[in-house]
Simulated assay, not measured.
Amino acid sequence: MTLLYPIGKSLYVNITNLCCCKCVFCVRDITDSVGGSDSLWLDHEPTIDELKAELEKFDLDDYEEVVFCGYGEPLMRINEVVEFATYIKSKKDIKIRINTNGLADLIHKKKTAVMLKDVIDAVSISLNAPNKEVYLEVTQPAFGIKSFDAMLSFAKDCKTCLKEVCFSVVDEISEEEIRKSQELADSLGIPLRVRVKNG
C-alpha cells in the first residue's frame, strides 16, 4: 500500500481513496499511479500509526514540502490530515500543502478552514470552472449544484487563516471558460494555475 510517495522535492501523502466528486478528467480513471509511484489504490484507509511508520522511511530534509494529495480527497479525513500534519511539523518545520476540491464544509457540515490554521501552510483548490453549471458538469460533485458556492466560500475562509491559497483549473475546459475562471479568481484575489490534463 503506497501511503507516501516522492515527486521531485515534494513528498506526497496518500491518506484516502474516498472522494465526493467524479471529475471527468480524474487521473485515477486512467492510471493507478502518479509520478512513478506504485499503485495508489489503498486496501484500507490508513491509520495515523501506519502513516507515522511510513514517514520513518523518508528523510524530510530531502524535501521542500509535504503535500496531501493521493487518490482521494484528503479533507474527507480532515481530522486525520490535521493530526498527521501536526506530527510532521513536530519532526520538521516543513511546508505542508493540501490539494483539495474545496468541499470540506459540505462533507463535514461545518466551517472547516479554521481547522487547518497553524498546521497547514498552503491549499490548492480545484476551481475547475467559472460558474456552477459548468462546475457541476465537469466535477460531478455528490452535493449537487450548491457545491460551487460552497467551494468558493471555503476558499475565502482559507484566505483569512492560511499563508497561501490558490485555485486550479484543468485545460479540459474551453479557453473562454479558463479566461472567465481567471476573472473569477482575480475578483477573489486568489492566484489561478492552469493544469494540463493528466499532467
Rank of each mutant, 00 (worst) to 15 (best):
K111E: 15
S181E: 05
R77T: 05
F154H: 12
G189K: 11
V24K: 14
L11T: 02
K146H: 09
E50D: 10
Y63C: 04
L75N: 08
C161V: 15
D29V: 00
S174T: 15
Y87G: 02
T112R: 04
R193D: 14
F154K: 11
F167D: 09
K132W: 04
L103G: 10
C161D: 08
S187Y: 10
D59T: 08
R193G: 06
P191M: 11
R77S: 10
C26K: 01
E50K: 01
I15L: 12
L75A: 03
V34K: 05
Q140V: 10
N198M: 13
I94S: 06
L75Q: 02
S10K: 12
A122E: 14
I125A: 09
V123N: 09
S90M: 04
T86D: 07
T112S: 12
A122S: 15
G36W: 06
T47S: 15
T100I: 07
E137D: 11
V67Q: 06
G199L: 13
K180E: 15
C166M: 14
A185V: 08
K95A: 06
L127D: 14
D149L: 05
A53W: 00
D29G: 05
T16H: 04
I7P: 02
G72S: 08
K9D: 15
V196Q: 13
E65T: 02
V13E: 01
D149K: 13
V67C: 07
C21A: 12
K109W: 03
E64V: 00
M115A: 04
A53N: 10
D61M: 02
V138I: 15
L188Q: 09
L188C: 08
I48C: 04
